[in-house]
Design a protein around this nucleic acid. Structure first.
Length: 256
DNA sequence: ATGGCGCCACATTGGCGA
């Protein structure tokens, strides 16, 4: 089973790229973030024509998440249980016995912003909810844009980013506490090229200069981590014309 | 120190992302 996550930064704009990527990469399950579409405008027909079922939870202009799957999606759930949030950032469903959770963690804006407080509160609520979800679903995967680079090696210039939003200690601690529930950062289960990133700012040719961050992650519970075969970041997608600022991350599980 | 780019909407400028 090939699991993927991609922040598309507008599904309306990126739909042709998504369809081309599905055909090339052949993922089984794809979690999308920043679809920026109300549910009424979700391109269901195009995605079904490509061979994928879909679940989506969106809003106008901001946020919005979706799960695409070749196999049936069951037991859908919207949002973090027990956490009121108008922003559409979380969607979950079960595919072939794997509980798939798609997350779009708040950006935080800057460490002195109210949005940063919201981000940390949001992480807390996510952790509490995921702990319960794990108890019910031992085969659990959390995929998405976490808006946190976990370690120095996930940042092109850690000294420059030290203390900044996306790399501040409280954010990294919040992500660490998720991993401490018994989730593995699947990308790091395998040997990887140095300076592997999943996001590059549009400005200043940062992609060409590989000045990025690794903030998009696929976390796997222990039974799934044992089955992981490979994990990669699809940089080709970021090199296209009119790209999203994020590249897809893909983790493959052995057939079980 | 600031803006750079791209997308969106009560749009031709400002909010937001990261």
């Amino acid at each position: 089973m090939k699991l993927a996550t991609w922040n598309v930064n507008s599904l309306k704009v990126r739909l042709p790229q998504l369809l081309a990527w599905l055909a090339r990469a052949q993922p089984d399950v794809v979690c999308l973030q920043e679809t920026k579409l109300e549910d009424a405008n979700f391109p269901v027909a195009d995605i079904e024509a490509a061979g994928y079922r879909c679940l989506y939870s969106g809003q106008k202009a901001y946020n919005g998440v979706a799960i695409l799957s070749r196999r049936p999606l069951t037991d859908p759930a919207v949002g973090i249980q027990g956490f009121e949030d108008e922003q559409k950032r979380v969607l979950a469903a079960t595919v072939d016995g794997v509980r798939v959770v798609c997350v779009y963690v708040p950006n935080g804006e800057s460490v002195d912003s109210p949005k940063y407080t919201y981000k940390l509160d949001w992480f807390d609520a996510l952790r509490v909810w995921l702990e319960r979800e794990l108890a019910h679903h031992p085969r659990l995967a959390v995929l998405g844009d976490f808006n946190v680079a976990p370690e120095d090696r996930d940042v092109h210039d850690p000294r420059l980013w030290e203390g900044k939003v996306l790399f501040s200690v409280p954010e990294r601690d919040a992500l660490r506490r998720l991993l401490d529930l018994g989730l593995a950062d699947s990308f790091r289960l395998f040997e990887q090229p140095e300076k592997s990133f999943s996001w590059w700012d549009y400005r200043m040719n940062q992609f060409k200069r590989n000045m990025g961050l690794r903030i998009d992650h696929i976390l796997l519970s222990a039974p799934l981590a044992q089955e992981a075969k490979a994990s990669t970041i699809d940089k080709q997608v970021r090199a296209q014309e009119r790209p999203s600022d994020h590249a897809p991350v893909v983790t493959e599980l052995a057939e079980s």
